[in-house]
């Protein structure tokens, strides 16, 4: 871990301003991803701004019936929140499928959205990785790639986004509220938060340097049956091979998002009108431009079979 200076921010505006004018500054909240990567020097911030005292840990109902979730709400608290359990069960389920009890107590809502990939080549600094060292090459291509992405991939990167929570947030059309370095607030639809790798896999989000997520808002509840199905080799405490988040209405209409298949939460709205037509058609629409490797080609069939199971379950 490289040396850094540390401060505990007392005000939001101050934190954002400091981040903007301090080269190499990063915010730290839960730390579960950042501290890990700093030990490996995958992350090398020169200054850490601890934002845990900023009071961004409230969950409030909005006048429109939606929910405003503070950026620092811990994963445990978000999953246990009674509104979330009742009206956004898919979010609760997704959170509870992720990590471990300990990590959910530490990890925050915003931090979870900004998790970096778990690609082993990203973690091993001896190996080329375009995400870690732009231009060095992608080791996962032609390497061990069972966990890797099958849609939205590029010749530069086939990493996946590891979050479960983000899949549910994408399904729910969440909006990310941020404060920019100039102190202004902006809203980013979650669909626009995460980027595909293209030829700049090191740029993962549409946030500006120093821009801080302050909250995530959810539109009013959608009703329907909420399902989050995470498929993994071991029964718990493992990243998804794939996951399916779905909300299915009584008439079979609904929406679906996939985890473990792309560099970002994967949702194809245009394909969703096919939901009543079953898993095969739906899969074709969701994964129409899939590019698989030898190791992860199974994910296409796995998505189809899991979708079939989820749609069956929704029928009750």
């Amino acid at each position: 871990m490289r040396g850094f200076t540390y401060e505990r921010a007392n005000s939001l505006a101050e934190a954002v301003a400091t981040a903007a004018h301090t080269k190499g500054a990063k915010f730290i909240a839960g730390g579960t991803n950042l501290v890990d990567l700093m030990k490996l020097q995958v992350e090398t911030p020169t200054h850490l701004i601890d934002i845990n005292d900023l009071g961004l840990d409230k969950i409030e109902t909005k006048p429109d019936g939606g929910l405003r979730i503070g950026a620092l709400v811990r994963n445990t608290d978000l999953a246990a929140n009674e509104h979330v359990r009742r009206d956004y069960a898919v979010l609760s389920r997704a959170l509870l499928a992720g990590a471990s009890g300990q990590l959910r107590n530490q990890a925050t809502t915003a931090g979870n959205l900004l998790q970096r990939t778990r690609c082993p080549y990203f973690y091993d600094t001896n190996l080329p990785c375009n995400k870690r060292e732009p231009g060095s090459g992608c080791s996962a291509l032609g390497g061990y790639s069972r966990q890797h992405a099958i849609v939205g991939v590029s010749d530069s990167c086939i990493a996946t986004h590891p979050s479960d929570m983000a899949i549910a947030m994408r399904l729910l059309d969440a909006t990310v509220e941020t404060m920019r370095p100039n102190g202004l607030i902006r809203s980013i639809p979650i669909a626009q938060l995460h980027r595909l790798p293209e030829n700049t896999p090191h740029i993962e989000y549409t946030l500006e340097p120093g821009e801080l997520i302050t909250a995530v808002t959810l539109p009013k509840p959608l009703g329907g049956t909420h399902i989050y199905r995470k498929v993994r080799d071991r029964a718990s405490y493992a990243f998804a091979l794939i996951s399916v988040a779905a909300i299915v209405q009584r008439d079979g209409a609904g929406r679906v998002a996939l985890g473990g298949v792309a560099h970002k939460p994967w949702r194809v709205e245009a394909a969703e009108h096919d939901m009543p037509r079953g898993a095969k058609v739906l899969t074709a629409g969701l994964l129409s431009n899939a590019r698989t490797t030898h190791d992860n080609a199974f994910k296409v069939l796995l998505v189809e079979r899991t979708l079939a199971s989820v749609l069956n379950e929704a029928k009750g």
Binding site: V35, D50, Q102
Partner: peptide, 19 residues
């Protein structure tokens, strides 16, 4: 490395002492 902080279990390897 699990310890209990303010009544909640966390992994103490992924948080900094200064925090």
């Amino acid at each position: 490395c699990t310890v209990i902080v303010d009544g909640r279990r966390i992994v103490s390897c992924l948080t900094l002492a200064v925090m």
